[in-house]
Design a protein around this nucleic acid. Sequence first.
RNA 1: CGGGAAGUAGCGCAGUUGGCUAGCGCGCUUCGUUCGGGACGAAGAGGUCGCGGGUUCAAGUCCCGCCUUCCCGACCA
Length: 412
Amino acid sequence: MYWSKYFIPTLKEVPTQTEAISHQLSLRAGLVHMLTSGVYSYLPLGYKVLTKVENIIRQEMNAIGCHELLMPSLHPIELWQKTGRDKVLKEIMIAFDNKKGQRMCLGPTHEEVITHLIGHFVKSYRQLPVTFYQIQTKFRDELRTRYGIVRACEFIMKDAYSFDRDWEGLKKNYDLQRNAYLKIFKRCGLDVIVSAADSGAMGGSVSHEFLVAAPIGEDAVWINKDNGQVRKEEEGMSHPGEGWSRQVAIELGHIFQLGTKYSDSLGAVYLDENGQQKPMIMGCYGIGVSRLIAAVIEANHDEAGIIWPKEIAPFDVEILPVQTADEGLMSFAQVCYQDLKAAGLEVLLDDRDESAGRKFNDADLVGIPLRVVIGKRLLAQGQVEIKVRRGGQVIVVAQERLKETILKLREA
RNA sequence: CGGGAAGUAGCGCAGUUGGCUAGCGCGCUUCGUUCGGGACGAAGAGGUCGCGGGUUCAAGUCCCGCCUUCCCGACCA
């Protein structure tokens, strides 16, 4: 991609009325744009990152046998009345009457819809277990939005739902999800903390949260440095004692063993081997996908900008020709561009006729993991410079060794 | 929803005890010179001073009401 033909509206100055680093950097790097409080557009660069995160999630969900589907955002309120959650979630639910006078809402989550759907299609123990997931927009009318994309009224979530014949099956699925979550967060460059947690409005018994340390976290966990135990901080909790330290963190994922709460009230039942009707045993598993990006930025940045982990970086390499007026230099940059692209890399070429300083600063801000700087002096000696965004290591190599060096650095 | 702060050009800001045609920096347009860390010169475009009402000869500035955004709390990925 040529920068001049793309759309990366970087900001030199820190936007006013922003506190969180991730909020500031996501605006400054041209990832997102606010429409109104808690409602954001994803600009091309931000959307590219989002897509990469989504694809990692897809890979890991598919790997444990989940099936992707897409459920609607518009729900008839009757469905929610059946579980009583029209009242439980009233505060955050966006509800309205349509032209036919039907009460509708925008889905804040999808237990009701999926249970209704599975109850319709699944009738026999032979069809179980089964797990579905979607990556979709959720609507929650937060009384207080926070830190840009961290707590929004419209956000993107991965939600998965498992249906089993018994609790043994559920526990197996629960563990599969748990392990998949660890892989997902790792691939996104996050060190995740897993903690047993309260099930809240979701219902059910066992649940675990996946948190990432961040100063803007809305939660806190206590970690025991001796045995690695983790405890979620509950309200009014006192210091657990020697060896425990407190860590403020942001919740990115939450998995629940729901049991029969939804299958009972929505009639999701199946016939077992003996012809006996039984409620399906459910689990649900969520990841705040858009929030995850904010957490990644919180955990991966420096004074100058974002430092993307390689798997979710919008591009693998940025090529930065310093003197755009120099035709020989620019054509060499284009050769490098084609060369690296042919090697299977996603490459961004900053072909803009801007001052070197501005291009360097934008490159730091946008945070592509590897940068190839092409300047007159080194080029005259048949050399180019590679700069690693994380850590700032600078390597000067002969032109012929550019591709292999980039590929090697990418694997590192 | 309680408490606090803020709203002047796309972004960041100044605007004094009310007083001339509302300014500055960045960005944007055109031309020229530049080109290894946000270059320089020249000429331009861009405003419902958040909205409504009031006070006054005169309101960005004072008063009242409202809206919006941000932060702290209470609640959730």
